[in-house]
Structure formats: C-alpha cells, structure tokens
Amino acid sequence: MQTKHILVWSALFCAPLLLNCGGKTVEEKEEEEASVSAMGAVGALKEMATQAEDMQKNGTAKAVDFRSLKELLPTSADGLDRKEATGEKNGAAGFTISTATGKYANADDTETIELTLVDGGATPMVMGLAAWSMMEVDKETADGYEKTSTMGDYKSYEKYDNGDKSGEIAVLVNKRFIATAKGRGVSMDKLKDALEDVNLDKLAALK
C-alpha cells in the first residue's frame, strides 16, 4: 500500500514537469514544445516503480537537512556575489524534500544566476523531477538548443536561449540530488562554471 501511495503522489507531482501541458492551446503547444517528452514521462514512472519496490525491500532514505545543502552553496558563482541564500524542507505522503537556493548577481543585476540543490531522499519522486536523466535529448533551433549530456561523472540536462542569454543546466548526483544553475544575461559556459563552484562530490556524500 505504501508503494502505491508513493507512485500516485509522485505521478501527480511530476506530471506537469514531465508533460508541460498546463492549459495551453494547440498553437501554443506547437510553438513551445515541452522540454520533457511523454516518452520520458513513461520512462520516469517505470523508474519510480522500480525504486518503490526497492524501498519496500530496503527502506527509505530520508532527505538531508536543508542546512547541509546550504553549506554547499558557494559565496560567489563564477565571480557573481551571492545576494541571498535560503533553504527549506517540505513533506507530503510520508517523505520530504530539502531545498537550498543561492541567488547571485553583478552590481547592476544584468547578470544573474540561481543555484538550487534539491534532495528528495531515495524516493521515486527524484527520478520524476529528473526525467531527463533517462532520456537522450539533442535539439537545436535558431533561438537556442536543448540537450542531455554529462558533466564529469553525472548525467546533465542543459537548455539555452540565445535571444536573452538565459538558460539552465542541471545534474543528477547519486540518483537522489539535483543541482541546477539557472541564469539570465550569462553564457552557458558561465552557468557551467557556476555549477562547478558547488562541490558535487561532497553533495554526493551527504546522508
């Protein structure tokens, strides 16, 4: 019964992220394709089912205290000073998500980066949030690109818009932590460098 509850809650939580359909017209959907496909959603749900079975056998790993995540936020992100650092832990259906966020900017806020560290523990929901980790994406348009790749030893997802120089890169660490750098007015190289300012090996070692 616990497994069923986890799968249902995870599916409901992840569906908007996976399918990105939220009330758009057909024309809008055609103009703005979803970042994660329905095929990826199916794969994510299958992975969640597998993880739920493992949880039944091995128990659930609790999310770490968000303060441990906050400690890994660098004081600067590739030269941009940290303006704010926040953290929180939220719970539902018997498990929790810990999140730490750092906001970085230059003096006139023309360059901004947000670093986010998320831990959902060893729960199926994590794979729902990182459905891209089970897909191969490689898309390029006149405006930018979207693709999955690797960053060091970790599977990564990146998306960039050349028009307003905005984008994001995310990595899945140890099948439970998601580290993301989002920015505006910056290059993808700067976003990658900012994410590298987070000690991902220390993140992987958290328990």
Rank of each mutant, 00 (worst) to 15 (best):
M1P: 10
Q2L: 06
H5F: 04
A11N: 02
L12Q: 04
F13R: 14
G22Q: 12
K24A: 14
T25V: 01
E32Q: 13
A34N: 12
S35Y: 02
S35C: 03
S35T: 10
M39W: 03
G40H: 03
A44F: 04
A44Q: 07
K46T: 00
T50A: 12
T50W: 03
K57T: 02
N58P: 01
F66R: 09
F66A: 05
L69G: 03
L72W: 08
L72N: 07
P74C: 13
A77C: 03
G79Y: 06
R82F: 01
E84S: 09
G87I: 05
E88Y: 01
N90E: 03
G94W: 05
F95L: 02
S98P: 07
G102L: 13
K103M: 13
Y104A: 12
D109Y: 13
T116N: 04
G120D: 07
A122L: 12
P124M: 07
P124N: 00
M125F: 13
M127E: 11
M127N: 11
M135P: 13
V137A: 02
Y145M: 13
Y145E: 00
E146W: 05
E146L: 07
S149A: 15
D153Y: 02
E158D: 03
D161Y: 04
D161E: 08
G163E: 12
G163Y: 01
G163P: 04
D164P: 06
K165D: 00
G167T: 00
I169N: 11
I169M: 05
A170S: 15
V173S: 07
K175T: 13
R176K: 13
S187E: 13
M188A: 10
D189Q: 13
L191D: 09
L200G: 11
L200H: 05
D201P: 02
A205N: 14
A205P: 03
